[in-house]
Nucleic acid binder design. Sequence first.
RNA 1: CGGGGCGUGGCUCAGCUUGGUAGAGCGCACGGUUCGGGACCGUGAGGCCGGUGGUUCGAAUCCACUCGCCCCGACCA
Length: 572
Amino acid sequence: MRWSKTLIPTLKEDPADAEVVSHKLLVRAGFIRQISRGIYDYFPLALKVIRKIESIVREEMDRAGAQELLLPIASPAELWQESGRWEVYGKELVRFKDRHARDFCLGPTHEEIVTDLVRSAVRSYRELPFNLYQIQTKFRDEVRPRFGLMRGREFIMKDAYSFHTDMQDCRREYDNMFETYKRIFTRYGLQYRPVEADTGAIGGSLSHEFQVLAESGEDAIVSCNLCDYAANVEKAEAKGSRPAARDLTEESPQLVKVSTPGKRSVAEVAEYLKLPPEKFVKTLVYRIDNNDFVAALVRGDHEINEVKLQTALGCREVALADEAAVAAMAGVTPGYLGPIGLSLRTIADFSVQSMRGAVTGANEANAHYTEVDQERDFTPSAFADLRMAAAGDHCPRCDHGLLEAHRGIEVGQVFYLGKKYSEALGATYLDAEGRERPMEMGCYGIGISRLVAAAVEQNHDANGIIWPLSIAPFQVLLLPINYNDKATREAADRLYDELRRRGVEVLFDDRDERPGVKFKDGDLIGIPLRITVGAKGLAKGCLELRWRRDGKTVEIALAGAAQTIHGHLAQA
RNA sequence: CGGGGCGUGGCUCAGCUUGGUAGAGCGCACGGUUCGGGACCGUGAGGCCGGUGGUUCGAAUCCACUCGCCCCGACCA
């Protein structure tokens, strides 16, 4: 492609509305432009990257035995009503009416649609199993789109759905997809980790996320420094935390009420009483499923994990109660809440069990108890794993490992769905005995457009983007120093033709610009290999070959240059 | 939805407090000098200052409402 014939609107300055580096660079380098909140134009360079990402997905999905198909973006409300998600999904689901006033929505995901397809097309166990996938634009009216392509409302996703006669076969496909995803993300040249994940709104019982490691990632993950355990903190089991309240007084003196005027947070009270946060018990009042209230206890140095709380309580929704509700329930503001004498059902994290010499609120204004002994002074209705795992925790899977914390960008997720959708929508088959049975299902997503952002987050420097070769918009940037110089022009034109003939993807900067401008633009858009054609080099019969990533530069002979370049690419 | 911030040529911003009819840098066009890491000189085009309503002799500037965008939080690929 000749630069002069394509549209690459580069910018010298960072756009004012971008925060993270991938957003800034993708806009500056002329890949994307925001047209509305969370909705972007993809310029030619961006589309090339997207096509590369997609084609690797296709190759690997096809290799894994999946079949590509294409489902509609608009789907009728009936299917969503049947699965129950028309009510459950909320405002994120964009709904509209057609001219006949029939309800529709834009598909945020396609379990209903594909299940409907399968129930009408498949009758017998002989037709199972299979895995259907598509690559398509999705729309979710996100509460808070942000960070450019990282969290758009409109985004491109690969979604796959598999159908099976039994759990074992569905598990086999889950593992098949897990391995396929590892191959895909490895081919992208990204540093990633598969982590155990919560299943969230999609439902199901087993799930892994594929997280591209990046500081700007929205997800917190932990991984073991010794074994291969890794999990999203939402899901990570919290076990054997740092030694903390263990060395507490054995003799368990009397409960002591102390005055703590105006001190409300653990940090404030800890500072005031000169006691470490791990000796505290935090009491948090939650409203569950919009009617009942429950008090959750975690140690002062821990964070509560609401997903775990929800699971432990077996409820659909938990939300921190507001101050007025707390005052009504407990007769005190949240800063002075404690489990002793609290007339609320309480549930406590394991780390609170058997605590001694602890500090809690006294359920009266400006007062706390010290020397609290859990076994002597209060009894929660249950103990459970309620806290966020954190760096330094003991690994829940191996003996000596410790957890490390990372940030990640979730670029893929695999789910074992079970019969959730097949039962709701009646996707059944007849088994060998002629009995009707619901199918077992799995689903598997990859965020295609999000991957563009993730790749940039992980591959850039002060000068711009550094695309991994496998997803770069072009493999080679051919840069003549002065395209008006006759010798340069002839050599560059010839090389351009020869490279293309060999199937090398070349961006040819044939613009009448000063060299500095071309070098800067070239670094910005991040083509992996740059070939510079200049009068000085030509005089010696040479060209300069330079890798964008490490700046490594070699001179190569003009004669046979196309072949030499092809060879360097093949080795990369 | 709650909290905070911002809307002024294509881009990044100044001007607003203390109303007097719009500026800079970059970019763009043309001419000239340049030409291996975002050149220089000259000339020029381009803005109903997000919108509506108000206050005023007069509003980018003050007031009200409204729309859009960004950040933080509650949600999620």
